[in-house]
Write a protein that binds this DNA or RNA. Structure first.
Length: 488
DNA sequence: ATGTGC
């Protein structure tokens, strides 16, 4: 048997790109890493594998804990991790969702081509930067009171539709149609709402961005056509989450769960994995709060897209409908959801809390939750790369339900810490280099953020996507390359 | 990720 030794953790090769950490000691299941050897070399360098093994101690974890090819160390649970816990006898864990609840990406297509934008990148990037709030502070697109926040938390993109910030197709082309019905705004603290009320429609900081891109490759013509993607086309990618509201919510429930479920916590190898037993009051409350924060993040991305349409209207002097600025799809990559999956050798149906932290839902063709427009080809999956590397559109692959609870990777995945990145790079140099070498125009609130997000601090997104495609969990459809970017 | 810290 082929094995891989990563500082004391031995992985057994199940087959190409599938590695297993066998069940041992108090582990409830084995763990699996989906990666090529070169990605495994990178994944082995931080605490990812130790954290992944720790997650198999969580009650009700089913089949195995999974690390995606872009996995790296996170708070308790690896980023790029998938854990499916039994919804009756298992648990739900805020650390397995992530601090930025419903961090995610949406891609908007257009009928513009690269030639339409060439030479006007500066004008476009300046106008986007001036009109889309970014960075820490700076307010949001909608300044609202707590009543409005409550409505957004309860209704998601449906609120945006009613208030003129969305059209019906925007909802159809969003995971869960832009609303989690099980949301309860009463489960979100006043403090979280206060933090959120001035951030409705804002990018935030860190790896969040808005990028105008051009399609460089369409690998699958049939699926590309179904998604409305053609070579040289201009598209817009928006990557952000639930801002301070989601962060505060994660923090609030971590503290509550640590206090109320100390017995369970004592059984876990890492305090950061604090979990509420399925069926407990806190499990229900966290789930209702998380769903509300998910709705908030969807409205956030919707408002940014709405504002982007307005900016394009001014810059190109045409209506957004005329430029066919339609939402291709919006996918979350930091969520948990109650889903029914067929598990085990006896193929029983089980209700599970599927935690996807830095992992994207990737449902295959025919799945009832794939929007009608894409049902014959599979759910669109959007994988943002780093600033200099472009991004990918995939479609949910035929093997995803068997291998990964219907999931794939979410991005390139960090290679080094933010602090390390700031020692290696200087923001201004990174911007100059991107402009000189690739005609990519980056405008950011903070030079430090640019340094933290320099292309060199990320893994190779091509390799991440190659593994996803080879495993059949998310198949390559198209690749894009940046034209101009705004950041926090 | 984050008014970047019990």
């Amino acid at each position: 048997m082929t094995t891989y030794d990563a500082n004391g953790v031995t992985l057994e090769r199940v087959r190409e790109y599938v590695w297993e950490i066998p069940q041992d000691g108090d582990m409830r299941t084995p763990a699996r890493v989906l990666a090529s050897e070169s990605l495994l070399d990178e994944i082995s360098e931080d605490k990812t594998l130790e954290q992944l093994t720790n997650t198999t101690h969580l009650p009700g974890i089913t089949d195995y804990a999974i690390c995606m090819p872009d996995g790296h160390q996170g708070y308790g649970f690896p980023v790029g991790g998938v854990g499916a816990m039994d919804a009756e006898n298992g648990c739900i864990s805020p650390g397995a969702v992530g601090y930025d609840i419903n961090c995610g990406v949406r891609m908007m297509t257009t009928n513009l081509t690269y030639d339409d934008v060439r030479g006007r990148e500066r004008e476009l990037v300046d106008s986007l930067f001036a009109n889309v709030p970014s960075g820490l502070g700076g307010g949001g697109i909608v300044e609202a009171g707590i009543d409005t926040v409550d409505e957004i938390l309860a209704r998601g993109v449906d609120w945006a539709l009613e208030n003129g910030y969305a059209v019906q197709d925007d909802l159809r082309h969003c995971e869960d149609e832009g609303v989690r019905e099980e949301a309860d705004p009463a489960m979100i603290s006043q403090k979280a709402k206060d933090r959120g009320k001035n951030q409705i429609g804002s990018l935030g900081s860190g790896n969040h961005f808005l990028e105008v891109q051009r399609v460089t490759d369409v690998f699958d013509d049939e699926v590309g056509a179904a998604f409305g993607l053609t070579a040289d086309q201009i598209v817009v990618l928006i990557h952000c989450g639930s801002r301070g509201l989601g962060h505060q919510t994660c923090n609030d429930y971590l503290r509550k769960i640590e206090q109320h479920h100390q017995g369970l916590l004592a059984q876990l190898p890492d305090k950061e994995l604090a979990a509420a037993p399925a069926g407990s009051q806190l499990a229900e409350e966290y789930y209702a709060a998380m769903n509300a924060a998910i709705n908030f993040a969807w409205v956030n991305r919707q408002l940014i897209m709405h504002r982007t349409r307005e900016v394009f209207e001014r810059v190109f002097d045409r209506s957004w409908e005329d430029m066919e600025m339609d939402l291709l799809y919006d996918v979350a990559h930091n969520i948990a959801k109650r889903e029914t999956h067929t598990v085990g050798a006896d193929e029983t149906e089980r209700e599970l809390y599927v935690h996807r932290k830095g992992a994207t839902r990737a449902f295959p063709a025919g799945h009832p939750e794939v929007p009608a427009a894409y049902r014959d080809v599979g759910q669109p999956v959007i994988i943002p790369g780093s600033m200099g590397a472009g991004s990918y559109v995939l479609r949910g692959g035929a093997a995803s339900m068997d291998l990964t609870f219907g999931s794939t990777a979410h991005g390139a995945g960090r290679l080094m810490s933010r602090t390390q990145a700031k020692n290696e790079y200087w923001g201004g140099d990174v911007q100059d280099e991107l402009a000189a070498d690739h005609q990519i125009y980056v405008k950011a609130q903070s030079g430090a953020t640019v340094a933290e997000e320099a292309p060199g601090v990320y893994k190779d997104v091509d390799e991440v996507v190659r593994v996803s495609d080879a495993l059949g969990i998310g198949d390559r459809v198209a690749r894009t390359f940046p034209v101009c970017t705004i950041k926090g």
